[in-house]
Design a protein around this nucleic acid. Structure first.
Lengths: 141, 141
DNA sequence: TATTGTTATACTCTATAACTATA
DNA sequence: TATAGTTATAGAGTATAACAATA
């Protein structure tokens, strides 16, 4: 069963990577866009905390997104050390489309399950998630 | 539901990455070890085909594994162009232990499910896998 | 001619450390 | 002193292209 789950992991990753590549995006950069859309303009420091990644890494991700025309940097109005990152209109469109695709993918993956199967599968996922959180948080180092 | 599945993806990846790091391994290099264990000594060309990765990439992966003492290169007996990659005794031990850990992880994730739940979840995974294969193989480009 | 594996080069994601400008 | 973001440096995974040795 773990093998099936791991195969799902691999295929989902391949599907998402290929899909994003068509828009000139990567998984890591798309996570940034997703956060900025949810939060509105944010500092790079906040992005680093939310992504659980170093500030240096955020610099690189934002550099790539600026070069691709997905985000813009602007000075923070109150703190001259800080930079605000915001979506361009183009990125807003792209991310909206990605959100639609997200819904469609769910429909394609689970839409043909019967309601009972879907509920049973959701239960299994919830169970697995709880176990994984236990492993990662409280598990043996 | 897709969100739960994606969270499982992220956490599983984090768990495996952390676990492998304790042995001085990465996910990509471990895939090589896994294949070599299954196949016996193989050429780098064969590894490139099996991993669906470029030959140049295999050179790098094998370089890293040689440096870590996990694999050895030896000349192919019949084809002087080719190189055979084989596991060191140390790697055999490590991979055996990883295989045990694989079993334990399955037990930790699914062992506390009731048999009916486990079967239902396995069904859901199989369904999802079929849909993913359809998407990736025959899906719209 | 075709194949095996390499060097050369490049891009992405990630990290630590040192530094600048600001708070 | 502390914080925000940068440059400098490094390692890992991935790719294409050119090339040498061999088939």
């Amino acid at each position: 069963m773990l093998d099936a789950l791991l195969e799902v992991v691999v295929l989902l990753d391949a599907d998402m990577t290929a899909s994003l590549a068509r828009d000139g995006l990567t998984v890591a950069r798309t996570r940034v866009l997703w956060l900025v859309r949810a939060q509105g303009p944010v500092t790079q420091r906040a992005l680093a905390d939310l992504l659980e990644v170093t500030p240096r890494n955020v610099t690189g991700l934002v550099d790539g997104l600026v070069a691709g025309g997905f985000v813009e940097r602007s000075p923070h109005p109150d703190d001259r050390r800080a930079t605000l990152v915001s979506l361009t209109p183009h990125a807003e469109q792209v991310v909206d489309r990605l959100a639609e695709g997200h819904g469609e993918l769910g429909e394609q993956l689970f839409g043909s399950m019967t309601p009972e199967h879907r509920r049973a599968f959701a239960d299994g996922l919830a169970h697995t998630l709880r176990r994984l959180h236990t492993l990662l948080d409280g598990g043996p180092a």
